[in-house]
Design a protein around this nucleic acid. Structure first.
Length: 234
DNA sequence: CGCCAGGTTGTTG
DNA sequence: CAACAACATGGC
C-alpha cells in the first residue's frame, strides 16, 4: 500500500534533489533547483517537448548533442522548424537516432502548436491535465510517455510517467506486473502517492537514476539502496 | 563485437 | 487488445 511512497522517500533521501527536467546550455545539461520552484517559460516548455521526442528509446547524451546542434544551426524556434526542410532537420538531429522518424515527429509537433494551440504553447497550461494529455496524444509521434513528460515537466500537470526503467525497477521489486498496460501501471503510482507535481517529477527522475546506474539490464544489486525490499525477480 | 538506450507507429491475428 | 517489425545512432 504505502510502498510507493516509502520507496520515494528512501530514494529521495539517498540521492537528493534531481531538479528535472534539465535545460541544455552550451551542450551541457543544467539541472537547476529553481526548476522545481517556478513555472516553466515558453522557451523551456518548447525545449522539454522537443527533448522528450528526441529521447525516445535513445540515450540523453545523444539528445544533448542533437539539441545543441539545432541551436547552433538556429533551428531551435517554432518558425525555424516550420520553415526548415524535413530532410535537413533529420540530418541535424541525426545523432539522436531514428532521425527520420523524429524529424517527422518534430514537424508534427510544430504543426500542432500552429494549428491547435494558436501558435502559443502556453495554451496547454490552463487546461485540465487530462485534456492536455488528450491533446498531446493526438499528435503523431507523441505517445503516453512523451505526452505525460511534456505535461508534467512543462506544465506541472500531475501525470505520473511510466517508462522502461520504471517497469524494470518496479517489476523487479514486485510492485508492477511485467505485462500490464501503461495506464494501469500509472494508476498504481497515482493511487498511492499525493497528487503533487513535485513528487511525480522527482520520483521519475530518481527512477531513471536507479535504472541507469543500479537497476540496469544486468542489475548492480550490491549498490542498491532498495535491496532489502526487492523480490529480485530478474 | 554485441547489447542497450528516459518509445511510437503500423500491421496482423 | 496483444504481438511483432521497423525505425538508427552512439557509448561501453
Amino acid at each position: 500500500m504505502e510502498n510507493f511512497l516509502s520507496i520515494y522517500n528512501i530514494l529521495s533521501e539517498y540521492y537528493g534533489r534531481q531538479n528535472w527536467w534539465p535545460i541544455i546550455m552550451n551542450g551541457e545539461s543544467i539541472y537547476a533547483e529553481e526548476f522545481l520552484k517556478r513555472e516553466r517559460s515558453v522557451e523551456e516548455i518548447f525545449e522539454i517537448a522537443i527533448g522528450a521526442i528526441l529521447t525516445q528509446n535513445t540515450t540523453w547524451t545523444n539528445v544533448i548533442k542533437a539539441i545543441a546542434n539545432l541551436k547552433k544551426n538556429r533551428l531551435f524556434t517554432v518558425s525555424a522548424l516550420n520553415n526548415v526542410e524535413q530532410e535537413r532537420l533529420a540530418e541535424t538531429i541525426r545523432c539522436a537516432g531514428y532521425y527520420n522518424q523524429k524529424a517527422k515527429k518534430i514537424k508534427a509537433f510544430i504543426g500542432f502548436i500552429d494549428s491547435e494551440l494558436n501558435s502559443d504553447l502556453m495554451n496547454l497550461k490552463s487546461l485540465d491535465k487530462l485534456q492536455a494529455r488528450k491533446l498531446l496524444l493526438g499528435i503523431w509521434g507523441v505517445g503516453r510517455e512523451t505526452a505525460d513528460s511534456i505535461a508534467l515537466y512543462g506544465y506541472d500537470h500531475p501525470l505520473f510517467i511510466i517508462d522502461a526503467y520504471t517497469k524494470r525497477l518496479f517489476g523487479r521489486l514486485g510492485l508492477l506486473d511485467k505485462e500490464e498496460s501503461y495506464d494501469k501501471s500509472q494508476r498504481r503510482f497515482t493511487d498511492n502517492l499525493p497528487e503533487e507535481p513535485l513528487i511525480y517529477k522527482e520520483y521519475h527522475a530518481l527512477i531513471v537514476e536507479m535504472g541507469k546506474n543500479v537497476c540496469r539490464t544486468k542489475p548492480n544489486c550490491e549498490n542498491c539502496i532498495l535491496y532489502n525490499q526487492c523480490s529480485r525477480e530478474l
